[in-house]
Write a protein that binds this DNA or RNA. Sequence first.
RNA 1: GCGGGAGUGGCGGAAUGGCAGACGCGCCAGACUUAGGAUCUGGUGUCCGCAAGGACGUGGGGGUUCAAGUCCCCCCUCCCGCACCA
Length: 824
Amino acid sequence: MPPASGTTGSQFDVEQIQERWLPVWDRLDPFRAADDGRAERRYMLDMFPYPSGDLHMGHAEAFVLGDIVARYWFQRGYDVLHPIGWDSFGLPAENAAIQRDAHPADWTYANIDTQAASFRRYAVSFDWSRRLATSDPEYYRWTQWLFLRFRERGLAYRKASAVNWCPKDQTVLANEQVVAGACERCGTPVTKKTLTQWYFRITDYAQRLLDDMTALEGRWPERVLTMQRNWIGRSEGAHVQFAIDGREEPVSVFTTRPDTLFGATFFVVAADAALADELCAPECREEFAAYLEQVKRLSDIDRLSSERAKTGVFLGRYAVNPVNGERIPVWAADYVLADYGTGAIMAVPAHDQRDLDFAREFDLPVRVVLDTGEPDPAVSGIATAGEGVHVNSGPIDGTGKEEGIARIVELLESKGVGRGGVAFRLRDWLLSRQRFWGAPIPIVHCASCGEVPVPDDQLPVRLPDLRGSELAPKGVSPLASATDWVRTTCPRCGGPGERDTDTMDTFVDSSWYYLRYCSPSYTDGPFDPEAVRRWMPVAQYVGGVEHAILHLLYSRFFTKVLHDMGMVDFVEPFTALLNQGQVINQGKAMSKSLGNGVDLGEQLERFGVDAVRLTMAFAGPPEDDIDWADLSPSGSQRFLARAWRLAGDVSCPPGTDPATGDRELRRATAHAVHEATAALDSHRFNVAVARTMELVNATRKAIDSGPGAADPAVREAVEAVAVMLSLVAPYTAEDMWARLGHEPTVARVGWPQADPDLLVQESVTCVVQVAGKVRARLEVPPGIAAAELEAAALAEPAIVAALSGRPARRVIVRAPSLVNIVPG
RNA sequence: GCGGGAGUGGCGGAAUGGCAGACGCGCCAGACUUAGGAUCUGGUGUCCGCAAGGACGUGGGGGUUCAAGUCCCCCCUCCCGCACCA
């Protein structure tokens, strides 16, 4: 039997209210997705958490915002999918396991249980039946399955190259995980190491990842789109072939300024590219080898330092400029990147600052081919990279930049030595990790068959049982030491084989979890295509901007691949994205070293769940950072108590027709509902709360000094308050609902409708301005005619006075709210 | 350097080109109280004024408009992202 009354007494007892309603909600399970086709479906997704410990203030902020959206949709009658799960593979679990001499799963699943309990108490409207964790074998089985499908399509492949290496975590990192030359996770400067690793061919999708962003315009934060565009980094230009003395094949370079081709005075190859080694003449070998050693020792941080002088060595070879046949020296340098374009460039020192710096360092010639009217770069040291008129450029002399580019590209194409084209900054996604706690790469290496995929019916390839010090980083994957696990038979020939000992980047796990939620226990594939058709794409995604590139780009890539495989019928997974701001304290990010951390559990203990949720929602626009020191959870608690007391004051019985109630309060209710609805639709949660507060104030006034507690309009108002509060302060709302004589749960009773008749005001305050300044106010009927309003305004004594005899040169009337008189 | 975003009371923040400062915090005063870190009421942008009232006011400067926090141009400051990508 659900309790038909709320907590008793006249004191707002937070603790008692929370204890009362939690078990009731457990029993009712009010937020399970029906998926029965009776209502329009909407998918509200929060970025799933990493189970690093208990929930913190940041989680509280992010999840309350998503929860308000989900609860609002529930109230509006949608069939809402609002799932929760855990991104539960990853390094911290391994470190904890080493420290405690335990298995990473012990720590991981204990933390998941802790967070789940906290989410329950925090009253997030999850469909708990869909709970998943990426470290569950039933989940990573399908991560492995997807990897194999990608491989079949040529989208997962192995290659040797110089990769980012974190010396502390003892693992490779994807480009996206290197921030300013340091490991995104631990901040250790990243070094390079040549290894054979697995990659996803995300570069095949670069153009589509870029193009499809137009559909996200206006629905995703602009800065996220910008960051992705920058990351993909599309450049237009030309590929130009340079013949090299003594080499059969020409070397192609990419340039965005083919119009400056006549100004190329030397040629540079990335020192760490295979090409440099190949091109090096025997007499330069020694010097080159020494230089290469020096380059490899540099960390990215040192290498990227902008103050650093250019370095390089001459390779003893010459390249031939295809447009003028000029022989130019070939150098190796580290300012050219091995993995962008072809790892080689034509250097035009007059019009590219980097090339100019290099030329000045090594006394190479500088030839101006574009007159921009600026000082000679050879003298000033400043390359002129803008617009101008071409000189010393044979057939394109006299042309500008645009035309010069077009003409050169034409010339190159006609001679068969180049073509117009694009280059992307985006690199393929390095997915192997030399770590234990991740999804094993389902490949067997066989001496006679090579790379052999593990057959689907043998998935998942489960992790061996390693624990404690067995997981300590040693530069190769801990899996390699599990010899019984590594040794296997080749699925193809039956001979001896060895398992791949790397695991997948955890971003692979999170690139498809939103699909798994649609059918979390499906056993015939990663997801039931029908369920995905019903729920996807995600209508609203909520999460931190720290995933602007990594997770969101990878998920978009996965979705497009799955689309091409015919498994989904959409190309973008997340229709709308909301980036919540950070919770900071005293102007700074919370941190242990600053000692300014705020403990979520302690806040919840002191102020109650609802007050903390309300404080987060009311603080300001959801995407702004909120400084906890500026806020007042105790003020939130006071407000909730005030709202709660209203429910105890209502004295007409449930079901009373409000039509006979006080019209002024009824209008206030309609107005509050109307405004709150608009605010919620545009994610202005703080404004929605403010409108609820106004209604509480108006209702208090009506009870104490208006029509009184027995007026039916009072009940109508308080019931509206309870429903509006059910999004933000579910405990308080539920208890109010019970005190009003209703059964639980208020969360599913439906959003109030504002009666349009009540939204029309009986009279409107019209502002009368003279020369744009307010000089009088008139109470007028809302339907007043413009001419009548103008006459009334001109007759107003204060207006006559303000005009002081001047005639009205012009009168602007915006009936019924404004009249502006422009004096002559 | 390139790109993105933001500057409104003591504070967090409101405001389809149409009454700037909603709502809240804080503060002041009052009521009820043995008491108040409870509750309720009123006040609270700045300046002048006893008041009525007036002037000024959304980072700075121009502009468009009957009317600008809002639109346009220039400048200043702050935050964020990228940063040898040829």
